[in-house]
Design a protein around this nucleic acid. Structure first.
Lengths: 122, 122
DNA sequence: ACAATACCCGAAAAAAGATTCGGTATGAAC
DNA sequence: GTTCATACCGAATCTTTTTTCGGGTATTGT
């Protein structure tokens, strides 16, 4: 099992928040669950750019930090469903604000990114 | 120079936002500048957990994406100062919300993190 | 002249994070 | 009974990010 070598620093709010939803796809996963896409296989299909494994792992982390909770029948067929906890719901305003900001400035940022990529190839 | 192998995906607001302020210390750098800590050496001292090099690099990225701008006297002594652009200021509400969320839940998250670390050593 | 500081940069190395691959288990559909 | 789907996990590998290290330029203070 992998253990971190550099000690984690949770000394400011920003770093605590980054710890909880800092993964590459965590906010997307939360967004999916919020939209009612609550079963693992569904989420994987919804976020098809990400590998299923990383979604599993990020679900596990979100679960561990109490952001989401799991409803699963132990019996088969396993119909696992995730849902936001109160803590998870407290993240929704942030999620929305972050998404809004990104959507608003997407065109500008993409333009800059394109310039950057062109400067690399030239 | 390092070039990415996996194509970037900026198809949703969340991913655009992550691109702009997703680095390990970018939000802390923005926070510092917002608080009036505007010179590179000062910022490095302020965020002394981070290596000066990464702060330089992240300043360069923030500059490139137009989040901050640079005021430097070309003459020596170089008194470089960074300040937020309009785009950068548009990030402040997010920054504040993220910091507030983290501060509010810091105790709980630290507790969970501690549990996790203990479960590793045992 | 010499040390200290500020600013910036390149490149190797280390660390962290993500992906791929294979495996387990169970049940359903054909 | 073979194939497919869901859910999950370990481990090797690959990619990205961060860190470390060293260099270069120019100024200030002693």
């Amino acid at each position: 099992m992998y253990t971190k070598k550099i000690k984690e620093n949770l000394d400011c709010g920003i770093l605590v928040a980054a710890k909880v939803f800092g993964g590459k796809w965590k906010l997307c996963v939360l967004d999916a669950i919020h939209r009612g896409i609550v079963r693992p296989a569904e989420i994987c299909r919804y976020i098809d750019e990400a590998s299923p494994r990383v979604i599993e792992m990020q679900l596990a982390e979100l679960l561990f930090f109490g952001v989401i909770e799991k409803r699963a029948t132990d019996a088969y067929p396993k119909k696992t469903e995730y849902q936001l906890t109160a803590l998870g719901e407290s993240l929704l305003p942030l999620l929305e604000q972050i998404d809004n900001w990104g959507t608003t400035h997407a065109a500008f940022i993409k333009e800059r990114q394109k310039e950057f990529e062109e400067s690399q190839t030239a």
